[in-house]
Design a protein around this nucleic acid. Structure first.
Lengths: 196, 196
DNA sequence: CATAAAAAATACTAATTAGTATGAAAAGGC
DNA sequence: GCCTTTTCATACTAATTAGTATTTTTTATG
């Protein structure tokens, strides 16, 4: 990778970490260039505006991460119900990057940036739609193999799972300990078993 | 009500509306005093800091509203399952103040202010705990009257309902139309019926 | 190695921010 | 009506913000 591409990626990564922990609006460009050890000239050479950088984070950091960690595993899944639970459980309790007190990066950005910045909204919506579509497909597959009841409606379940995930992450932020996660996961398991 | 108390309440109400639609950080004091037609001297007479005003909004606007609209009705409920659904459905589709594109005021503030402002976190946590506790009590009552299965765990269900609500409001923001609400509500009904 | 283009460094600006200092006007008690 | 306290008005400050203008350095290419 060229040196220039490297600084660009460096900015995106460090900025993402700051934004995840502090929020987008309260993360200043001065702060970003201070932690990246990059000058303002370099920053504005790579990104025309702060918002352009923000959208780049969604498309170049969040999207590939989600593709790799959630889309592909879900597509490969043979047992949707079990794997949905494992996916959420992993995200809540085991993912080494995500922290209880900081919530879900995608959820945070959605909350903070919509409906005021359409570029952000579009990029985030694309991301979420992809995840949702993958879950729906997985449910349909489960219905075919008989692992999921025929009456189950994929779209409804997808919304329900993802909403619950976003919501419980907000609870986690509020209480800053994962006890709420554990309680939530028990009910999630119970709910998912009801789909069998 | 004295004139002074009136300006104070006026500030809180207008500020709350701005914060609900724009977010806390991006709502400036200059903007608040412009829309309230109150001078900066008056503002800082009533509130030592912006954050103090923010906490006052939670305690003096959000809390009483929630008490009146959700706590008391839930306490009076004879049929928890039906009333949980009606409560969420009302909030999503009918409440005249809440708007799809702006999400849930409590959820928004939680997302934006925790974990950085402990005063906000505490005030919000109190609010949410109250709501959660009321739901749990209502479930226990439903178990006694036989409307809810004995194996159902109140705390789990409470987390599940509230998480889903917060989450779907985030979805609503992202898509800015209530079609996702309708899909979600169908699954919520199905989930709640499973508690019988 | 020369040169053009890409990449980055430095110093600045104009606007906005929360908050303050100080004084004037209302309101209430006697 | 006088006086004290409450309430509000005006003008300011210091810090921070995103973004720009300009120059310098680095890199690639002939």
């Amino acid at each position: 990778m060229s040196k220039a591409a490297n600084t660009r990626l460096n900015i995106l990564h460090k900025a993402f970490e700051l934004i995840y922990t502090k929020g987008y609006q309260t993360t200043s460009i001065d702060e970003i260039i201070a932690t990246t050890q990059v000058t303002k000239g370099a920053f504005y050479y790579h990104f025309k505006t702060k918002d352009e950088m923000g959208v780049a984070i969604i498309e170049e950091i969040l999207k590939p991460t989600m593709q790799e960690h959630f889309i592909q595993p879900t597509e490969a899944s043979q047992n949707p119900i079990e794997d949905f639970y494992n996916m959420i459980s992993y995200l809540l309790l085991e993912d080494p990057f995500l922290q209880v007190k900081y919530g879900c990066p995608v959820g945070n950005l959605t909350q903070e940036m919509t409906p005021w910045n359409t570029k952000f909204s579009e990029a985030l919506a694309e991301l979420v739609d992809l995840w949702k579509a993958t879950i729906i497909k997985s449910i349909e597959k489960g219905k075919e193999t008989g692992l999921i009841r025929a009456e189950v409606v994929g779209e409804q379940v997808a919304f329900f799972i993802l909403s619950g995930y976003w919501g419980i992450r907000n609870f986690g932020k509020l209480q800053n300990d994962n006890s709420s996660y554990l309680v939530y996961l028990k009910e999630l398991k119970s709910y998912l078993n009801g789909l069998k």
